[in-house]
Computed example of a mutant assay.
Amino acid sequence: MAILKEDAPGNRTYALTDQECALFVRLQTGPSNAELGEYLHLTERTVKFHLANIRSKLGGISRLQLCLLAAHHEFCLTSENHDVCLTA
């Protein structure tokens, strides 16, 4: 389940797994599932599974919205708890 906390107005934190974090970071350039899988050594089906989990944790947003979010927001990754902090 995602961590639904705001540490400042407009900042939200979501808990993601290692694989979800790796996929989220790579989404900035809008790669295909096959490209993501090749880069991260995952099957396309596994990529789809992780992307669906990310989208669900972020409120059921579309793939396009997810790519735009990764590309147009500043974010930081914390390795201890795999949180992604998005800044508007």
Rank of each mutant, 00 (worst) to 15 (best):
F49K: 09
C21D: 10
R63A: 07
K5I: 02
A52K: 10
Q65R: 07
H50L: 10
M1K: 14
D83K: 11
A8F: 09
A15H: 06
L51R: 01
A70M: 05
G10E: 09
G59V: 01
S79D: 14
G30E: 04
T17Q: 02
P31D: 11
L4I: 11
E44I: 13
F49S: 11
L77D: 14
Y14K: 03
G60L: 00
T17V: 06
L36E: 05
R55F: 11
L42T: 13
Q65P: 00
G60V: 10
N33T: 07
A70P: 06
N33C: 14
T87G: 10
G10R: 11
F49D: 14
E20K: 00
Y39S: 05
I3N: 02
H82C: 08
F75Y: 12
S32I: 12
I61R: 01
I54C: 01
L16V: 08
T17Y: 05
C76H: 03
T78F: 13
I54S: 08
C21I: 07
T43M: 11
L77C: 14
A88F: 11
K5S: 07
S56K: 14
A15S: 15
R55M: 14
R63L: 12
Q65A: 04
P31V: 08
A34N: 14
I61P: 04
H82P: 01
H73C: 12
R55G: 09
Y39T: 05
T87L: 07
G37N: 00
A15N: 08
E6C: 10
H72G: 02
L68F: 01
C67V: 13
P31L: 15
F49T: 07
A88D: 14
V84I: 13
L51G: 06
V25G: 01
S56H: 14
L77Y: 15
G37W: 04
L16I: 11
E20I: 04
L27I: 11
L40C: 10
T87Q: 14
K57F: 10
A71P: 09
T17W: 10
R63N: 09
S32Q: 15
R12W: 01
Y14C: 00
C85N: 13
L68P: 02
K48W: 01
P9R: 03
E20M: 06
A2W: 06
S56A: 15
L4C: 12
R45N: 05
L86D: 09
E38L: 09
F75W: 07
L36T: 07
I54L: 08
A52C: 01
V84Q: 03
K5G: 00
N81V: 14
T46Y: 08
L36G: 03
L58C: 09
I3V: 08
H82Y: 05
N11A: 01
I54W: 00
M1Y: 07
A22L: 03
G30Y: 04
L64P: 00
H41W: 13
